[in-house]
Design a protein around this nucleic acid. Structure first.
Lengths: 186, 186
DNA sequence: TGCTTTCTGTACCAATCGGTACAACAAAGG
DNA sequence: CCTTTGTTGTACCGATTGGTACAGAAAGCA
């Protein structure tokens, strides 16, 4: 019985990938067991709350990544344009240039949303707020900062769905470029 | 034993609503049975192929609605601007002003996509093609017609996800207005 | 070395899953 | 009225679902 993981945090990315592929309700414990290489004993040791706790852990992990790699640079970068540029680069990286879908978005669509309402709401809200602030610092005035932020965040989501529907990741990267252009007009 | 439906087509909208709420894999036959008021006998009488056939029927129904109410007006309206305006109105109506999510988009996200790849691909592709043609007729030149069409279709998807994540349908209707503005510039 | 805590595999549970079989019923045509 | 065709409910199937119990192995610490 060799130990497979030294801490719970190492399992989370594997869980995330499974949830991305099958959705929350579609991800079965047997699949999770197979892919993580962990029996039910171990899984319930790390996540006593079962699937729900796994889902929450995955959402927390995503939120953390975005806070570190997207929201904070947006807020703290001296040059707001640089922060926004960083956001688009990090976003492209995170979604594997369009080959990976948004887990939070997938959770948001079906009844899974009700279980994780707060995390899902917070993720998008934080993104919009951070981007809006950066745009305002960049010179966007009145409601335009907020509107553009909403359009960009929603546009990224939509481009992910669209690219996946067409099985063509380039549709995502190209959409990203055009969304970035929307943030450049003074 | 009173007959509940005179034809299969009447069941499909009920199925669609269930799939919207739970996703494809999350929609159980018992839930379907309860909501339609139909026992398994009747369900498998109308849909011998089981859940898969129900899913396909629902997708066909959506495709049909969009062909009639969105794609055709886009193609055949003498004034392309009128066709586009019609598209936005019909879209807002179809998605209940943002209170309803996109079934095709939800199917596109998880492994459900693989079962219905063709229908999902076709839905978005047809929409983009029809809108692109209308934009071109309206004077959009070069790659701009195609790009704007992609941005608008993806933007609608994203706005639906975003509005649902915030539990605020107005985010959708407002996003629609701004997307429409993108189609107005000559 | 021993003791304790952390981790792991397996057996098991009731409930539910999608799907099948079939007999009983209703409606329509003659 | 009888037959045919279409529709319905129910009982049932094996498989899988998320979750629990628990004995025992591995690792940490004394």
């Amino acid at each position: 019985m060799a130990r497979k993981y030294s801490e719970r945090g190492e399992i989370v990315p594997v869980l995330a990938e499974i949830f991305r592929e099958h959705g929350f309700s579609g991800a079965s414990l047997s699949e999770i067991s197979k892919r993580t290489g962990l029996g039910k004993g171990s899984l319930y040791h790390f996540f006593p709350g079962g699937k729900d706790e796994m889902g929450q852990a995955v959402l927390d992990d995503v939120a953390n990544w975005f806070e570190l790699n997207v929201f904070r640079p947006l807020r703290e970068s001296e040059d707001p344009a640089a922060g926004i540029d960083h956001m688009f680069k990090a976003t492209a990286r995170f979604f594997h240039s369009g080959r990976r879908i948004c887990l939070v978005g997938s959770f948001a669509l079906d009844e899974t949303r009700d279980r994780f309402a707060q995390a899902i709401h917070g993720y998008f809200a934080a993104w919009v707020v951070a981007l809006e602030a950066a745009l305002r610092r960049k010179g966007f005035e009145g409601t335009r900062a907020r509107e553009t932020a909403e359009d960009v965040v929603a546009g990224i989501q939509g481009a992910l769905v669209f690219a996946r529907s067409q099985d063509d990741p380039r549709l995502f990267t190209r959409a990203l470029r055009r969304l970035q252009r929307q943030t450049e007009a003074a």
